[in-house]
């Protein structure tokens, strides 16, 4: 462990009706750590991520983020979510607002900044992802890669303690993936704690501290990327890695 855990999720179970999606998952993430979660589709990795900020309500289990019990009813979930940035596969930018408006909204309504201060901070967040010149563009006028960078700026502007990435490059054309990964690497170098669900194995190899392999709602194997990719222990991980190579 690099330092004290900032995410501590214990024995997370999640069922959708009769379907068990998470079957007793533990996830402990240290401050400044970058944890990668890989696994076949339907393995529960996205659901796990979405439990961490309570977009999904776990059926049972315990989650503490930044010292706050995520699942307790007395927890102000909105105040907590501000500390947990999330980036989605489909960007989910607000189409009726400019890039600047997208980033500034939570700064105004959640942080409570005045319009001018919110826009100033939004501009600097956009500059950090290399989109200072796109502040007045609407999402539909931006490429997929640019949209995803606006989405990252939107999350980062709130100065979260943790960033969750749910397949951030899966919806992008191959030539646009690099720009998003560059921004993520930059965040990483800035010391951001990150949990990333993704199939970008090269990025995992280069940037991750730890990789978790999930299948069937459980963590099958975890460790540093070199170990996991170099010497997979389980048959399921070996099969999964082979299936990726074929593509």
């Amino acid at each position: 462990m690099l330092s004290r855990p900032i995410i501590e999720a214990r024995a997370i179970h999640k069922s959708f009706g009769p379907l068990k999606v998470l079957d007793g998952v533990d996830l402990v993430v240290a401050e400044r750590e970058l944890v990668f979660i890989i696994g076949p589709s339907g393995s529960g990795k996205s659901t796990l991520l979405r439990c961490l900020n309570r977009l999904e309500e776990p059926t049972s289990g315990h989650i503490v983020v930044d010292g706050i019990d995520v699942l307790a009813h007395r927890t102000d979930i909105n105040a907590l979510r501000r500390r947990i940035g999330m980036v989605f596969q489909s960007f989910n930018l607000y189409p009726h607002m400019t890039a600047l408006g997208n980033v500034a909204l939570a700064l105004r309504r959640v942080v409570g900044l005045r319009r001018r201060d919110a826009e100033e901070r939004a501009r600097s967040a956009l500059a950090r992802v290399g989109l200072a010149d796109k502040a007045d563009a609407y999402p539909a006028q931006l490429s997929g890669g640019q949209q995803q960078r606006v989405a990252i700026a939107r999350a980062v502007a709130l100065e979260p303690r943790v960033m969750l990435f749910d397949e951030p490059t899966s919806a992008l054309d191959p030539e646009l993936v690099g720009s998003v990964l560059r921004v993520m690497r930059q965040l990483r170098e800035g010391g951001m704690t990150m949990v990333v669900v993704s199939h970008e194995m090269e990025f995992a190899r280069a940037a991750a501290d730890r990789v978790l392999f999930m299948d069937g709602g459980r963590v099958i194997e975890q460790g540093p990327p070199d170990c996991l990719f170099g010497a997979p222990k389980s048959d399921r991980l070996r099969a999964f890695l082979r299936s990726l190579e074929r593509h």
């Binding site: 989910n92 930018l93 909204l105 939570a106 309504r109």
Partner: peptide
């Protein structure tokens, strides 16, 4: 996804409705 993006940034349900 619009709800999710707004709620995950800490917006209340009411703000999410009104603004997004």
């Amino acid at each position: 996804g619009q709800w999710e993006a707004a709620r995950s940034s800490g917006l209340s349900a009411l703000d999410t409705l009104g603004w997004v």
